[in-house]
């Protein structure tokens, strides 16, 4: 720093050169950024046109129609608004089924994820050589979309909540396992070493040394997953796995004349999702911030 006071130094570029070099650098960076942006924009535009080509209706033709269906549904439902409370009550059991699917799959998947995460975390693993194997297992479970397992199981077991619960649980085990393992990696190892020094088994070390440390974060991730799983179980219902999604599909198939039913189911689903969102947001804030 003190060199600057000595004036021109032949080994250093002159101030003018520095600013020129800097400007050239900036220009080059801007050029690269511009090229990337251009390529990206071209990809977006051509991709969109391609997708539009393969679609049954065009974008601009469909745009004015977007609100037609909702307004048609809503106006019919408004005329029959007296039916709504009764319909909502009648479909509560389906909603409970959807929530049960989500809860069971989060619980089972979460328990599997706990084991998988501990087995695949460096420093904690029961069999350190096998961490890679358990990681691949989680990657695989995470990569399989729920719909694949659900549809195959529906073929074998018939429609109902069990295929959906199994399908979501498998995906949950993979997704939560990865997050759980990231949390466990940052756990303090001192309690584990302390337990080891008094001869605790692996199970005891994990249960008493690691789990209490990571429990708040794990619970918070599990709650977030539950939120996602409620949505997933509604969607799986739409392809035949029971619950409120299935009711919605049937109501849609009846179409005009039964739009009050569609709105009732939609209201149920919407209110549930918003309520769960809020509750889990609140609970997660309390968990993580103490």
């Amino acid at each position: 720093m003190a060199d600057i006071a000595h004036g021109t130094n032949p080994a250093r570029p002159l101030p003018g050169d520095t600013s020129a070099a800097y400007l050239a650098l900036v220009r080059r960076r801007r050029l690269y950024g511009g090229i990337i942006l251009l390529v990206f924009a071209l990809a977006m535009i051509s991709g969109f046109r391609l997708a539009e080509d393969r679609n049954a209706g065009g974008f601009l033709n469909g745009l004015p129609l977007v609100l037609d269906f909702p307004s048609e549904v809503l106006s019919e439902a408004w005329d029959k608004r007296a039916n709504l409370p009764g319909l909502i009550l009648r479909h509560l059991p389906s909603l409970v089924e959807t929530l049960n699917i989500a809860a069971v799959s989060t619980l089972l998947g979460g328990m599997a994820a706990m084991v998988l995460a501990l087995l695949s975390t460096r420093g904690l693993a029961r069999w350190p050589r096998l961490t890679g194997l358990f990681r691949r297992l989680m990657d695989g479970a995470r990569a399989i979309p729920e719909i694949v397992i659900a549809l195959v199981l529906i073929y074998i077991l018939g429609g109902g909540p069990v295929p959906a619960a199994v399908a979501i649980a498998i995906h949950t085990a993979g997704a939560l396992g990865k997050l759980f393992s990231e949390v466990a990696e940052n756990a303090d190892l001192k309690p584990v070493e302390g337990l080891q020094s008094v001869g605790a088994s692996w199970m005891q070390r994990m249960w008493l040394g690691v789990v209490p440390q990571v429990a708040p974060n794990w619970l918070s991730y599990a709650l977030l997953r539950f939120e996602i799983n409620v949505r997933a179980s509604a969607i799986l219902g739409f392809v035949g796995a029971g619950g409120i999604g299935y009711d919605l599909k049937i109501a849609m198939q009846w179409g005009q004349g039964r739009y009050d039913l569609v709105v009732a189911i939609f209201l149920l689903l919407f209110l549930t999702i918003v309520a769960i969102d809020r509750l889990s947001d609140h609970a997660r804030n309390r968990l993580v911030k103490g």
């Binding site: 539009e52 049954a56 969607i235 969102d277």
Partner: peptide, 27 residues
């Protein structure tokens, strides 16, 4: 909040009515 609460499933159904089946509707 509303968009997130309505959920992708419902948006998919609503948009499929306007744009017909196809990848653009999904996108």
């Amino acid at each position: 909040d509303f968009i997130r609460g309505v959920d992708g499933l419902i948006w998919t159904i609503v948009l499929a009515r306007a744009f017909g089946p196809g990848p653009m509707t999904g996108a």
